[in-house]
Simulated scan of single mutants.
Amino acid sequence: MATEKWTPAPLPDLSGRTVVVTGASSGLGAVTARELARAGARVVLAVRNPGKGQSVADGIAGKTEVRALDLGNLASVQAFADSWSGPLDILINNAGIMGVPQGRTADGFELQFGTNHLGHFALTNLLLPHITDRIVTLSSGLSFMGRIHLDDLNWQNRPYKPMRAYAQSKLANLLFTVELQRRLGEAGSSVRALNAHPGVATTPLDQHLRGLTGAFTRFSYRFYAQKKAEYGALPILYAATQDVPGGSYIGPSGRDGERPRIEKRSARDTDATMARRLWDRSEELTRVYFA
């Protein structure tokens, strides 16, 4: 059920809490970092371009820190995790790329799957011993287009389709959270794993859509670019700060997305067997395992 109109103004006091926001150098990540810092949190902007991240941090009133993190390079993910000390209250897996031309990460993974899913999979598991409260991983309403091809996750045997590859990575984000929450519960941990999606929002994520062809893509882009990042960030902030059950999926509702709500997950999003199989395959690919 949707909440009443909600803004970041009533965020709880986050003084003394530490948050990592990946991809916080622009768009949803920058807004999320700004609002969490305004509420008193120490916010670490984990970004591929530290100079760009510092420019964002300089405009934020509050405690911030910028650290280098390239989710398309597992050595960078490992270095980020190895440098971490002390508790981490909230990890927000926000960074992502969308609809990019076919490419490979430093480790040879398809660029969108490697960055959006495998990079965050590795980061979360490596940081998990430090996490005290919750992990929020972003997905997308376009996940409904996704199919998990366990035998061809990196698009080596299929004709590459940018938006289908993106959708696969976003479905993987949902299944990752399902299995992570199951494992956390089984281990008796109080840490919660959640998903959020922004609905449609104007962010730099859409830069590659303009060059894509096809009626569906043009239709999607026209509606995708209607709302500001401030509205798109509301479900993320809600998931990061409100008392919602582990495994919840927070999305927008209302004309401008001003009423975050718990979304109903589809059968595909909650396929426990596929979630476990994807987890096992992700461990094989990254060589990073559940703590």
Rank of each mutant, 00 (worst) to 15 (best):
S55P: 00
L209V: 08
G141A: 11
G72H: 04
A41W: 12
P87V: 14
A106N: 10
L278F: 09
V191I: 15
E283G: 11
D269N: 14
R277H: 11
E263T: 10
N157I: 02
Q226Y: 13
K63F: 12
T217C: 09
L14A: 02
R38L: 14
V66C: 05
A68P: 03
S55A: 15
K52I: 00
Y231K: 05
T286H: 08
T203K: 01
R134S: 13
L194H: 05
L14R: 02
T3V: 10
L28I: 12
A37N: 09
S143Q: 14
R147L: 11
T105S: 06
D256A: 15
R48V: 00
T177S: 14
E284L: 15
D70E: 12
I135E: 02
L180N: 06
G23P: 04
Q102V: 10
I236R: 01
I97K: 01
L74A: 04
G188L: 10
P252N: 08
H120F: 13
A225P: 01
I236F: 14
T22N: 04
L171M: 07
A291Y: 13
T22D: 04
E35N: 11
T286F: 12
T124E: 10
I262A: 09
S15K: 13
G53A: 03
Y231F: 15
S169C: 02
G257P: 03
A46K: 00
A2I: 11
K52V: 00
